[in-house]
């Protein structure tokens, strides 16, 4: 099973996210992460879906999405040809005994402490999912209070854009 990322350009109507997510659900396709937001043209939104599957599943997902009147364009974002990021906020216990260790991990991963209290601190980190997973693994020993992940956002490298594909 491979990991895939597709960017889906949709009309910026209410209910579109529901339609797209509902198609995945009813046809039994699993979503790993899904993010959505307006594009530089407010007429369109961009949904980034990451999922695990094979080529056949990917083709079927794209064909099913293509049939939806609100879907304008679909683009697969291949790993080598795209920048892929996820943003995570992690709240961990602040413990004097670990303080230096926490600082070093934050430093090595180029993360940021964005909220600092005597008993808890919140770290912000962006990166590819593998980096995030490794970071979470390392800070586990400090005691994770809660995590909030945005899910994957991605853009293709180079001058192209999903909107320029349709114009």
């Amino acid at each position: 099973m491979e990991k895939y990322i597709i960017a889906v350009l949709v009309k910026n109507h209410f209910g579109v996210l529901n339609r797209v997510a509902s198609m995945f659900r009813r046809r039994g396709f699993n979503i790993d992460t899904l993010t959505v937001g307006e594009t530089e043209d407010p007429e369109y939104s961009r949904i980034t879906v990451a999922f695990t599957g094979d080529d056949k599943i990917k083709t079927q997902i794209c064909s099913q999405l293509n049939k939806m009147p609100d879907v304008v364009h679909i683009k697969e974002l291949e790993k080598g040809d795209s920048v892929i990021r996820e943003l995570v906020l992690i709240k961990i216990n602040n413990n004097k005994a670990f303080k230096q260790d926490i600082m070093s991990v934050v430093d090595i991963f180029r993360a940021k402490i964005i909220d600092y209290g005597t008993s808890a601190l919140t770290i912000e980190i962006t990166g590819e999912s593998s980096k995030i997973d490794a970071f979470i693994d390392l800070v586990k020993e400090f005691g994770i209070i809660e995590i909030c992940r945005t899910g994957i956002v991605a853009l293709q490298r180079g001058t192209g854009s999903i909107l320029s594909d349709i114009k």
Partner: peptide, 11 residues
């Protein structure tokens, strides 16, 4: 006419 039917149930 529906591209999603191709390879959906039978390769």
């Amino acid at each position: 006419i529906d591209n999603a039917e191709i390879d959906k149930n039978i390769p």
